[in-house]
Simulated scan of single mutants.
Amino acid sequence: MKITMKKLALALAVAALPFAASAHKGWLEPSKTVLSVGQWITVDAATSTDPFLKDHNAMRLDNLVITAPDGSKVQPENASTGKLRSSFDVQLNQAGTYKVAIVNSGVSARWEEKGQRKSYPPRGQAFTAEGFAKEVPANAEKLAVTESLTQLVTFATAGKPNDTALKPTGVGLELVPLQSITDLYVGEEAKFQFLLDGKPAADVEVEIIADGVRYRSSVDALELKTDKDGKFAIDWKTPGLYWMSASVSDEKATTAPAKQRRTAYTAVVEVLSP
């Protein structure tokens, strides 16, 4: 599946990717993931040193996409952005599973000039061919132009779950749950598959961090790797929210003058007690 020029133009409006371009981790924190039809959830969005710690920056909501169980789009309510977090509400008026995602795409250039690191475009500005030609020297040293495609997602189900909102697009790195994404329980192995451009993504490293880092002596990140079919499994030890993230870098950029591509997918899921 190819990205249309219209979609790409909209995506390039956000070139700053705070949860992919720095050491800080981006996350969405739903107030609850299993509800009845008509109930509400509140979602916090931020970047921080570790997941769910409100200690760095609020997440921008420009590219927030909420997909209802029938595939339609839902507008957030009561959206606000503070210093350390953004938040918004969603009413689950349909039965089934909702996908809440911040989807970012962009192109960025990095190079060295007289021993100093330079980059284009400035944070929060869009990449343009004209701006690139003006700002980046023709003979720039150590020039790297990278196309980025990232998704930061979480899920909530009202009543009986379904998977319409979870269908992969075939573009970039995507996670496919091999059971209901909101029916995850301690003591029950959960299975997932990563796809890259619609095909199984083998040997992809997956980092998993449980909530509560602030109250532990260490992050205790779990590191897994997908098998030849892009699959991996997790045996949950404790209930709560879990942050799962993976990324792939390759030479499959589709937007000139980018040569490199980095695609990442980060999901927050809730694990319940049996």
Rank of each mutant, 00 (worst) to 15 (best):
Val176Glu: 13
Leu28Ala: 05
Lys25Asp: 07
Gln193Lys: 13
Gln39Pro: 13
Ser108Ile: 03
Glu135Lys: 10
Thr47His: 09
Lys199Tyr: 06
Lys252Phe: 04
Ala264Ser: 15
Ala144Gln: 12
Phe232Gln: 02
Ile66Lys: 08
Asp197Asn: 15
Lys54His: 12
Gly230Cys: 01
Ser36Leu: 08
Met59Glu: 09
Lys142Thr: 05
Lys252Met: 04
Thr154Gln: 05
Pro200Cys: 08
Leu35Tyr: 09
Phe155Ser: 00
Val176Asp: 09
Asp50Asn: 13
Ala140Val: 06
Leu222His: 08
Leu224Arg: 04
Lys83Gln: 13
Phe88Lys: 04
Arg261Ser: 07
Trp243Leu: 01
Val153Leu: 03
Gly106Glu: 00
Ala138Ile: 01
Ser80Ile: 04
Val74Pro: 09
Asn139Leu: 07
Val219Gln: 13
Ala11Phe: 08
Val65Cys: 10
Val219Thr: 15
Phe88Arg: 05
Val269Glu: 03
Ser80His: 10
Ile3Gly: 07
Ala264His: 06
Arg214Glu: 12
Leu224Val: 08
Ser36Ile: 01
Ala165Cys: 10
Asp163Gly: 05
Glu113Lys: 05
Arg110Thr: 14
Leu92Val: 02
Ile3Ala: 09
His56Ala: 05
Ala246Phe: 02
Tyr215Trp: 15
Lys118His: 11
Ala264Ile: 03
Leu195Phe: 13
Thr33Arg: 01
Lys252Gln: 10
Glu270Asn: 15
Val176Ser: 10
Val248Ile: 15
Gly26Trp: 04
Ser72Tyr: 05
Phe132Ile: 00
Ala101Asn: 13
Lys118Met: 14
Ser245Thr: 13
Thr81Ile: 09
Leu184Val: 06
Thr254Gly: 07
Arg60Ser: 12
Asn57Lys: 12
Asp89Lys: 11
Asp55Met: 03
Thr238Gly: 01
Lys118Tyr: 04
Gly170Ala: 01
Thr33Pro: 05
Val65Phe: 10
Phe132Pro: 03
Gln116Phe: 12
Arg123Glu: 09
Leu53Gln: 11
Glu130Tyr: 05
Ala133Gly: 02
Leu12Ile: 01
Ala13His: 02
Thr128Asp: 06
Leu92Ile: 05
Gln91Arg: 15
Asp203Pro: 07
Val176His: 06
Val103Gln: 15
Val219Ile: 15
Asp203Glu: 15
Ser180Cys: 00
Leu8Ile: 09
Thr4Asp: 04
Lys25Trp: 08
